[in-house]
């Protein structure tokens, strides 16, 4: 497996297929395409492969994967990663595909949010419920402060120097950023709804030491209101057991986990039905030829959002993708149990 970290900007990656998403169905698509000699690039917004399985329920058992009576989300991801190893897919993680346009020669030009460009013959959308995005606290008017005073992630720490920061949450993101940003902040308050933290115990301990030393403040309560002007935050109202408190802060970092949003897919000119992509059930192709959709993101009569259905969809998609990528090659249907050429691709000795 190849993990791409940094690449000089402006370079275009030319490939046969780009898979958008890296959940279980996208991973299995690598396998089915690989058997047909098609190598894939995968792009995913998360920092790891596995999609919802790895992000939402890594520890939770799944009982309806054929042949695996019980498997956790992470185990399934790990097994799929092992299964597709012979096909050496390239992963582009922490990236979101923002644009798809048609190139003059019929191929598609894809552009990600960090500027990576792909020129590909076939696109496979395996994006599940859409891209994971940070949850926005449902507080009136919060949008006005986003990007100026309200941030859902930290890209550059310098931005937070000499700020009066309020971090909200009790998980690892909240605690990690509390520890990292406190030294350069003017003041830092961590707000959580209870005096119990999901975050790693050693970071909680460190945070408590900083509180004891008077370097920061820990508040138990919940955010209820933002106050400020022109996108600049001046203070927030926090509800605590004792009542309400107005806290003067100019920077707010809420960490309430991730949610799935369809995101830019809605702007790609594909037919959509209630945020899902309609496909046929022979090839799982969208309204745009050469763009396929597999897994939870597609819809057709009788669709079931099951991982096993997505696996089937990926297999049929690969057959048609082969026709686009190798128009002159005849495809012979083969079994991995008996075909020596398939076994060779899989590295069987």
């Amino acid at each position: 497996m190849t993990m791409v970290q940094d690449r000089p900007p402006g370079q275009i990656i030319e490939t046969d297929v780009v898979i958008i998403g890296a959940g279980p169905v996208a991973l299995f698509a690598v396998f089915e395409l690989g058997l047909l000699d098609i190598r894939a690039h995968l792009i995913d917004i998360l920092d790891k492969p596995g999609g919802q399985c790895a992000e939402l329920y890594p520890e939770k058992p799944i009982y309806d994967i054929p042949g695996l009576p019980v498997v956790t989300g992470q185990e399934l991801t790990d097994r799929l990663m092992e299964q597709i190893k012979p096909f050496d897919p390239t992963f582009h993680l922490n990236e979101r595909v923002d644009e798809i346009s048609k190139h003059d020669d019929g191929r598609f030009l894809l552009k990600t949010d960090v500027g990576t460009c792909f020129l590909t013959k076939v696109v496979v959308i395996g994006a599940g419920g859409g891209s994971f995005t940070p949850k926005r606290p449902p507080i009136d008017g919060i949008e006005a402060y986003e990007g100026t005073s309200v941030h859902y992630s930290v890209r550059r720490m310098e931005v937070f120097r000499d700020k009066n920061i309020l971090i909200v949450g009790g998980g690892d993101s909240a605690l990690d950023w509390t520890l990292s940003l406190q030294p350069l902040s003017k003041s830092l308050t961590l707000l959580h709804r209870r005096d119990d933290f999901r975050a790693a115990p050693h970071s909680v301990e460190k945070m408590r030491e900083m509180v004891a030393a008077g370097d920061m403040r820990l508040m138990i309560g919940q955010l209820s209101c933002l106050h400020g002007n022109d996108g600049l935050l001046e203070s927030v109202t926090v509800k605590t057991k004792e009542g309400e408190e107005r806290l003067p802060v100019d920077t707010l970092l809420p960490f309430f986990g991730l949610t799935m949003k369809l995101g830019p897919i809605a702007d790609w000119g594909l037919n959509l039905e209630e945020n899902l992509i309609p496909v046929d059930t022979e090839k799982f192709e969208t309204s745009e030829p050469r763009i396929f959709a597999v897994g939870d993101i597609n819809v057709y009569p009788g669709k079931l959002k099951l991982i096993l259905s997505g696996f089937h969809e990926a297999a049929l998609m690969a057959q048609k993708a082969h026709k686009y990528i190798y128009p002159d090659k005849k495809l012979l249907f083969q079994y991995t149990t008996s075909s020596s050429s398939l076994q060779k691709k899989l590295g069987v000795r």
Partner: peptide
């Protein structure tokens, strides 16, 4: 569930 309630609003 208590851990997951951290992700809810106005708990």
């Amino acid at each position: 569930e208590e851990d997951m309630l951290d992700f809810a609003f106005d708990v």
